[in-house]
């Protein structure tokens, strides 16, 4: 196990060729015990070792702009995803959340902004009236040209369904004030960072939030974690080999620092990647899409090796948001 972890670590840190060398030299590394200490107590979540899919290494999030989504298929609850309320009744999430049996499901999802999703009957849900996936998205064929994004339109604003939680993480109160029921004109669109701004701001860490199940099919909790930026534009061969599309996506948590300790996971799909400005305002930069390609010990269902996120600060996505009814300007919502 240690050898495989070392190989994967070398792949992530040094690229494919170095990976080949590491594969040959794996036993030497093992003998000289050069492995980072945390590898000896791995928190790698695999489908075998841990049924939970919650954000790894995170803490409770108090930000109710982040919502949980239950996707329905053939009249049944068929999976959980996460999303960001980008406008009072519009939720931005991932398109793949709606893929069932190789097709986009037809039933509108249910949405909640409660901290805990106990189960569908117990939670307070708001039914979506409609949703749309990014143009060109297909569940069957590869979606190289399309973005893994979708918008959900809610019948009602989910304000006031639950008292604010006292969070482990400190979330500035200003961001909560903007969510008061009287505020129905807000839009996060003006806050979206385009890639140019992201590049110049040079963030080394980005926040990710979502509602992964803590136990399989039992409870989902809104968690939040800060991840290292592994590749902001996926220009490199290594990022490309990990399945990331250049300038359309970015990779978080795939570096040595986060490896096995911090990551998004299954139910966090569609959740936001964001930063906060000095005033605590949520600045969206991306959407949780999928894990990086995994090999060896990181089989299907494993989390902890890093994730791929869809950029929303690119012109095509911004045009789509505006054309889909997301307001370009935000009304003040402080009162």
């Amino acid at each position: 196990m240690l050898r495989y972890a070392l190989i994967a670590w070398a792949l992530l840190c040094n690229g494919p060729i170095a990976h080949a060398k590491a594969a040959n030299a794996g036993s030497n590394l093992e003998q000289t015990n050069l492995a980072p200490a945390w590898l000896n107590n791995p928190m790698l979540k695999t489908s075998n070792s841990n049924p939970g899919n919650e954000i790894i290494g995170g803490a409770l999030s108090n930000d109710r702009l982040i919502v949980g989504i239950v996707v329905q298929h053939k009249g049944k609850q068929s999976g959980i995803c996460s999303g960001l309320r980008i406008a009072p009744q519009v939720v931005l999430t991932a398109a793949h959340c709606f893929c069932r049996d190789g097709q986009v499901t037809r039933l509108p999802p249910l949405v909640t902004n409660q901290t805990y999703i106990n189960s569908r009957p117990k939670a307070i849900w708001i039914e979506a009236v409609a949703f749309q996936v990014f143009p060109g998205w297909s569940c069957k064929r590869s979606s190289v040209h399309a973005y893994d994004l979708a918008l959900i339109y809610l019948a009602d604003s989910p304000e006031g369904v639950e008292p604010l939680q006292q969070s482990v993480r400190k979330v500035p109160k200003e961001s909560q004030i903007k969510l008061q029921p009287s505020c129905n004109m807000f839009s996060l669109f003006p806050n979206i960072r385009n890639i140019d701004q992201l590049v110049s701001e040079n963030h080394s860490k980005i926040l990710v939030s979502g509602y992964g199940y803590q136990e399989k099919d039992k409870i989902g909790t809104r968690n939040e974690v800060e991840l290292g930026v592994s590749s902001l534009t996926c220009r490199s061969e290594l990022a490309s080999n990990l399945g990331c599309r250049s300038f359309k996506e970015f990779i978080l948590g795939a570096g040595q620092r986060d490896f096995g300790r911090r990551d998004a996971c299954g139910g966090d799909s569609g959740g936001p990647a964001f930063v906060r400005d000095d005033d605590g305002k949520l600045i969206p930069v991306g959407v949780v899409s999928r894990g990086v390609r995994r090999h060896g010990p990181f089989q299907k269902g494993a989390c902890g090796a890093g994730g791929i996120y869809t950029h929303i600060g690119v012109p095509e996505v911004q045009r789509w948001l505006v054309n889909s009814g997301v307001r370009q300007n935000s009304e003040p919502c402080l009162n």
């Binding site: 494919p16 793949h96 080999n241 399945g243 299954g266 899409s289 390609r293 090999h295 990181f298 299907k300």
Partner: peptide, 19 residues
């Protein structure tokens, strides 16, 4: 790397979750 051609279904070594 990591993405396999179609046809092996559950016996595939495919490691991608989605795409």
């Amino acid at each position: 790397p990591g993405s396999w051609s179609r046809g092996c279904g559950p016996r595939s070594l495919e490691s991608l979750l989605v795409d």
